[in-house]
């Protein structure tokens, strides 16, 4: 009990250290403000968790976010600067990252060079590697959650679904990861999955960076299975031992696995090594999928156009415009 009291005191003192300037966005359980750390003048994002909304106290994801971000400090993982509570709300002070990968993918005016894609994937994998070596599953990797700092560094964010790797015998929920990036074992309702689900998501993001459009856009959970296997073949006991024991496995339509030539046509801009890495990361059998360490050691990253330096990666153009011509303030919609 005593410890909680002291915590509150500390929190109150840190509360005055930050200012909330402007509302940037609102989610189901939190409001995000643009703020400033008064002592250092550093720009931050402040995530105010709505309390009282839920009868049973704080939202789970807020707790998860605090729990795991506190533990991790890495160049490619968003930094949790501080946590404080004020007027009945929990506030997470996070690094301010104005851009995300989804915005870049959708911005038609930007052209991705092969080296840019390599750099983003490299940074994503480094972040994922750091999570995995600390036995933390991110469970919600998607371009929208890969934020880009002004210096071009890519950082994993939104640890609202993260959790540590289960203890043996413990069930994990299979209803995680945004649908398009969900690994096949999750689609089959597996409850004892591994880090491989994050690698799958990275593989799909890799493909999306190449195509500039979502790779496996399923309309609903059933359609997701169909889309996934149409693209990568339907798993069988031969290429994925024990798959038929998974809860939701019932032989759907059987699609043949794509030949290498088909994949090559699909990713016409990919080099042989890039294709190789995509194939390794999107293996249907989670046990065949490469781990983050293997992915980082892949020849693709050694191959010639080397990964672009983060500072030279493409950035959102709208920002420059709004700086140049002051008047149009409408650009900031949210």
């Amino acid at each position: 009990m005593t410890s909680t009291i002291t915590n509150v005191q500390v929190a109150n003192s840190t509360c005055s250290n930050y200012s909330k300037d402007r509302k940037v966005g609102e989610g189901t359980y939190a409001v995000v403000y643009l703020g400033k750390q008064l002592s250092t003048d550093r720009r931050t994002a402040i995530k105010e968790i709505k309390t009282g909304l839920f009868k049973d106290g704080l939202d789970m994801s807020a707790l998860r976010e605090v729990k795991y971000l506190q533990e991790m400090k890495h160049e490619n993982v968003i930094e949790l600067i501080d946590v404080f509570s004020a007027s009945n709300s929990l506030n997470l002070v996070l690094e301010y990252l104005p851009c995300d990968l989804e915005m870049l993918i959708k911005e038609q005016s930007i052209i991705f060079k092969p080296s840019d894609i390599k750099s983003w994937i490299l940074m994503t994998l480094r972040g994922v590697h750091h999570c995995h070596r600390n036995f933390i599953l991110h469970r919600d990797l998607k371009p929208n959650n890969l934020l880009i700092s002004p210096s071009g560094q890519l950082k994993l964010a939104d640890f609202g679904l993260a959790r540590s790797l289960g203890n043996p015998g413990e069930d994990l929920t299979s209803n995680v990861v945004t649908r398009w990036y969900r690994a096949p074992e999750l689609l089959f309702g597996a409850r004892h999955y591994t880090e491989a689900i994050d690698i799958w998501a990275v593989g799909i993001i890799f493909a999306e960076l190449m195509l500039r459009t979502p790779y496996l856009p399923g309309k609903d959970d059933v359609d997701q299975l169909d889309v996934t296997f149409r693209a990568l073949g339907t798993p069988t006991e031969q290429n994925w031992p024990n798959v038929s024991s998974l809860p939701l496995y019932n032989s759907l339509r059987v699609y043949p696995p794509p030949s290498r030539q088909e994949l090559r046509n699909r990713f016409s801009a990919a080099t042989e090594k890039a294709l190789d890495l995509i194939i390794q990361m999107t293996q249907l059998d989670p046990n065949m999928r490469c781990a983050s360490t293997e992915a980082l050691l892949h020849d693709y990253f050694l191959e010639m156009p080397r990964a672009t330096d983060p500072s030279e990666l493409p950035q959102m153009p709208s920002k420059k415009k709004s700086e140049k011509n002051e008047p149009p303030q409408k650009k900031v919609k949210v």
């Binding site: 043996p168 597996a190 409850r191 999955y193 591994t194 798959v243 024991s245 998974l246 999928r289």
Partner: peptide, 14 residues
Amino acid sequence: DKQYLGAGWRQQYI
């Protein structure tokens, strides 16, 4: 347990 194995779980990881 085949459910464990099918999901990619291996005892070595534990």
